[in-house]
Design a binder for these strands. Structure first.
Lengths: 216, 216
DNA sequence: TTAATTTTTTAGACTCGTCTAAAAATACAA
DNA sequence: TTGTATTTTTAGACGAGTCTAAAAAATTAA
């Protein structure tokens, strides 16, 4: 249906759309580790196929059909991640690259049966919501730790940075999905956050607090 | 590691090597539904990478490293077919195209874990042997029904034609893997083969007999 | 053994997705 | 508001993989 490159562009645009309505050429180039000129070429093609709204120099947004395709790719990615962790026992920091390949397997029937086989999971191993077969998924109500008040408690439920380095750091600190934490203090000097977890105190940097999401 | 096209060429050459030592440009073109000129171009590239033995106008054979790659692709293909049928409950005539895509997922670790998850199966849903993680697989001792004598009995164990049409025909006739049959007669006029299966007689054409394999 | 046929290779061109370098548009700052 | 910096687009090229048309080699037949 769509080429590998097209799917990757749509996914990138979708992801960047979370942060701002309109996505710029340079943002996409950075996300996909390519050059702005390559992005411009592809945007022209995607616009021609009515997958994005694009006017020169004005940035892009997904059309409804473009969003549908993007959500579908995300569904595939997250279901495969769930499979890799739950059935093949990979660790959560090992599965991203594999799922990145697997998400391009095209059969819808395959994905729906995989979904059923695993019992229709609602979140992937990183806490991200898995869209259902109609592309619906509830709004994610998770907040970065850096955005909650002192003395707030919550359950670690997701990450914003999916890099292996970050995930391995979390693993090492036992900051994994499902753990209950309380924000004890925010040190004003450098915004270090002091957490309480299982009666132990733990300090995390502002950056980590920004990328670690909790459900209240 | 290797491109999609390279992998498909190696797989095709491997398959054709079953029938004759040296594989011709035209045979490969037919197998991959492409043109002889495209094949020549690719053969040059594969030879440069030492994956095939190739001299102009003389046909090709796989080198040891080419064969290793090909067997690996086949291992991946057959394991995914097994997964699709055994875990996701697809029918044996539905899985080929999906597995054709999935076989290009590159992680070796993934395939080995999939293998383990399914309990190290030795044959795929069409009766074909699945190579182990070292690329070893026992010689297939199956014979086409057309090659056995009258009054021979055996168990249907594989096919040479993997097309949906052929598999659906077999399904309809109940000629599926595991069924015990006896060759009762070969009608000399057109080489129609008369089989006995579960006390019923059944006639199959020469062509079907050629493509249906039994273990004696 | 020469001629006809088939197979294979070469030559040149096309699409996809990418790149570099340069030009054009936009945004920002004095 | 005018000039500078940044962002984005254009122009032209390249590699991968494919194609058609034509040439070269190999095979088959007379």
């Amino acid at each position: 249906m769509y080429t590998l490159a097209e799917e990757n562009y749509l996914k990138a645009i979708y992801k960047l759309s979370m942060l701002a309505e309109n996505v710029s050429t340079n943002q996409i180039a950075a996300e996909l580790a390519t050059k702005a000129s390559s992005v411009t070429d592809m945007l022209r093609k995607l616009a021609e196929k009515l997958l994005i709204n694009y006017t020169r120099y004005q940035g892009v947004s997904l059309t409804q059909s473009g969003e549908k395709v993007a959500i579908n790719i995300i569904r595939r990615h997250r279901l495969w991640e769930y499979f890799l962790v739950e059935k093949l026992h990979f660790k959560w920091d090992e599965v991203h690259d594999m799922a990145e390949e697997m998400e391009h397997i095209s059969s819808t029937e395959l994905i729906d049966r995989l979904d059923e086989f695993m019992g229709f999971p609602t979140r992937d191993p990183h806490g991200d919501l898995i869209p259902d077969s109609n592309g619906n998924f509830k709004k994610n109500d998770l907040k970065p730790i850096s955005a909650v008040d002192v003395n707030t408690s919550g359950v670690i439920s997701g990450v914003r940075d999916h890099s292996t380095a970050f995930l391995q750091y979390l693993e090492k600190q036992c900051l994994t999905i499902g753990k209950k934490i309380t924000v004890k203090e925010i040190i004003s000097y450098d915004n270090t956050v002091v957490l309480q977890m299982e009666n132990k105190d733990l300090q995390i940097s502002r950056e980590v607090a920004n990328n670690l999401l909790i459900a209240l």
